[in-house]
Design a protein around this nucleic acid. Structure first.
Lengths: 194, 194
DNA sequence: CGCGACGTTGATTTGCCTCAACGATTGTGG
DNA sequence: CCACAATCGTTGAGGCAAATCAACGTCGCG
């Protein structure tokens, strides 16, 4: 069962009984996406909370000059949604796009709220999960203070070792807030150093 | 009772019974801080979750060259803690400092965990609260993509109207990631425009 | 009163962007 | 299975936004 992956994820936090397992697994729907296909377009409401079974996504915004800026990458066994749009049911400012062919499991607002009622411990689990995500995001803000782009690039490689190999440098540059050209120069510079 | 402010805060989310109120209020301790006094120093473990009754705080990190960078401001009727340090019980990278004379209510890890058991709905309330904080932080990351520092300054004034008047420009510059000198030039420029 | 925090202005420097051009690789439809 | 397009990484020349360093006036406070 593909939804087993979700149970394994939850049990990293708190054990889940057999009855709860079936309650949880029931409402999720599986979807398959090709590379470049979108889970969410800005302007739409984010209607689903998404668990990534396999593959990889980027979430990004577009500035007033039309440039894209990656906010986060999410790979297998992790969750992605624009919380702001999902909970307020308002148009999202963000896009979510598959960087690889991917498989996901999705749950809508109504089903998720019902699950929170039926399985109250989900509130605890999701609270902790979101705390983790908050900490990760705060670390990102902290890293952005590292003065030079080279240092931020090194920090990124350190923190996302596994992911970095799978991502094109253009996407990494967009995450770091620099141009692909400048990232290329940074990499060249690093080679001559060592 | 100063802890009434906490109940009012919680009831913005979900009603709380009389019995729950006393359970919740019991473990909080009140503290008074002068301007510039610290709630947390980097290197220490963040041992308390703090509710601000009155006054205002900044949370900041220090980079490798010794420069301070503000991550967030928190004023009355809001919570502040370095979640990363609080939940992992490891040394914090951050500092929390009073920008004004302030009064706070603090709860330690053990007491907070006990409260989560005694009053399970706190998990729901804190989940939602942290979601809000996550969204706020994500907006901050998004705003940082706004190309020019002037635009980011305008965004900041828009979002934190009330707070902006109370903060010295040096603190705002540190939040925006620019020098106080450059913020001064931006402000001068804006005057001549209108 | 005197000291430290704060804001301002000027001159100079620099990290990173912009625009343009060119191979290498990937993927895709005929 | 090849041809062509699209994506990706790289390099060069020139330009700009913001940093740096230094100096000075003002204000609030112990």
């Amino acid at each position: 069962m593909p939804t087993d992956a979700i149970i394994r994820f939850l049990e990293n936090y708190i054990p889940v009984s057999e009855g709860e397992k079936s309650l949880i697994q029931a409402p999720f729907e599986e979807h398959v996406l090709k590379r470049r296909q979108k889970l969410l377009r800005s302007g739409e409401v984010c209607k689903a909370y998404t668990f990534v079974v396999s593959g990889c996504f980027r979430m990004y915004g577009v500035d007033d000059r039309g440039f894209e800026h990656n906010i986060q990458f999410v790979a297998e066994n992790d969750w992605i949604a624009d919380m702001a749009s999902f909970y307020t049911v308002k148009a999202s400012l963000l896009n979510i796009e598959a960087l690889e062919a991917s498989r996901v499991l999705q749950i809508g607002q109504a089903d998720l709220y019902r699950l929170y009622e039926e399985v109250p411990k989900l509130n605890r689990i999701f609270k902790v999960m979101i705390e983790h995500k908050y900490i990760e995001l705060q670390n990102r803000v902290l890293q952005n203070f590292s003065s030079t782009a080279e240092q931020r690039y090194l920090d990124f490689l350190e923190q996302y070792k596994a992911l970095a190999n799978r991502l094109p440098n253009t996407q990494i540059a967009s995450y770091l807030g620099i141009t692909p050209e400048f990232l290329s120069r940074i990499r060249k510079n690093m080679q001559t150093k060592r």
